[in-house]
Structures are given as C-alpha cells and as structure tokens.
C-alpha cells in the first residue's frame, strides 16, 4: 500500500506540473524509496492515481534502469565499467568485488544484503574506478577502499 506520507508527496509533485501524468516518475521514485520495488499491487494503485492502465505503469518501470519490478537486496552497489573507468582498472575491481562478496549469478549476496552490478558512465570519470552505493558515490577506489565502504553497510 502506498502510505499517506508518500501520497502527500506525490500530490505535491502533481501540483507543480501542468499535467498529472508528468508526476509519474517522481511518484515511482517516492514509492520505491518506501517499498523497495514496484509490485503489481503498487502499479495498480499508481494506475488508478494517474488514470492509466497498470500495464502502462509497468512499461515505464521497465524502461528505466533505476526502477525495479522485483524485490531487491538491501543495498545496490554498481561499479561503473564504461570506457574511462575501464581504462583505470574498473573491470578488475568489479571481478575482485564479485569474488570478495561471493555473489550469485544474479549479483546478489546470500544474506540479501548487497546486489552488485555494473553500470554505465556515472559522471565521475576522472575519479575512476568508482562505484555507486545506493545514492552515494565512492570514488578513486582500490580494492581495500571499496571493501571498507561495503563493510559499513548494514
């Protein structure tokens, strides 16, 4: 269920835009922050709110990398493997982290704590290699520094 607080934030987003539908991306961000992913149930609620079919909500969810249709690990760790980062060892770091965290073939740790993935350029090319940990950037990494950043995660 979309909470009342989330609903209030969505209404505020709607009020700033010329058309209701424009607040769909903000609404997805708000709801996902609370619930972790966009379930069929949430898509139905959002569909009602935005007067569109739930399938249309899910189409938008699947178009954007940052929206998830499935339950997620508690933390997302994305190593940038685009060209400038790769030139400075990002792919080696990625493999080391894969081994260190012992992630499964989908990139998840067994305890549901971390999902490890790779990502395209995050606008930190000069500070490579780098990774995004949830909404925080960790830059100028080596393996030790990356491990320490991950240890802090609950």
């Amino acid at each position: 269920m979309i909470s009342e607080q989330a609903r209030a934030r969505i209404d505020e987003a709607i009020s700033k835009l010329p058309a209701r539908r424009g607040a769909l991306l903000p609404a997805l961000h708000i709801v996902q922050e609370e619930l972790g992913h966009i379930s069929p149930e949430t898509a139905r609620e959002l569909g009602e709110l935005f007067e569109i079919h739930p399938v249309e909500v899910m189409e938008v969810v699947s178009f954007y990398n940052m929206f998830y249709a499935e339950p997620q690990s508690r933390h997302h760790v994305y190593v940038c493997t685009n060209l400038p980062c790769s030139l400075r060892g990002a792919r080696v770091l990625y493999e080391q982290l894969e081994a260190h965290l012992e992630v499964d073939e989908n990139g998840n740790t067994a305890d549901g704590r971390i999902h490890l993935g790779h990502e395209e350029c995050l606008g930190a090319c000069a500070y490579a290699p780098m990774m995004r940990v949830d909404d925080r950037y960790c830059e100028d990494l080596d393996l030790d520094k990356a491990k320490r950043a991950l240890e802090e995660l609950e």
């Binding site: 424009g22 954007y64 990398n65």
Partner: peptide, 20 residues
C-alpha cells in the same frame, strides 16, 4: 531514472511527461 536516451531533448520531454 537511468536512461541515457533521456538526454536527447525530445526523449527528455517524453520522460518529463511521465512516459518512456
């Protein structure tokens, strides 16, 4: 929400309107 094509100005406009 993580889509390179939304930097293209009309892709951006569609996204702003809550679409793909």
């Amino acid at each position: 929400a993580g889509a390179y094509i939304c930097g293209e100005e009309t892709g951006l406009l569609e996204s702003l309107e809550g679409k793909k």
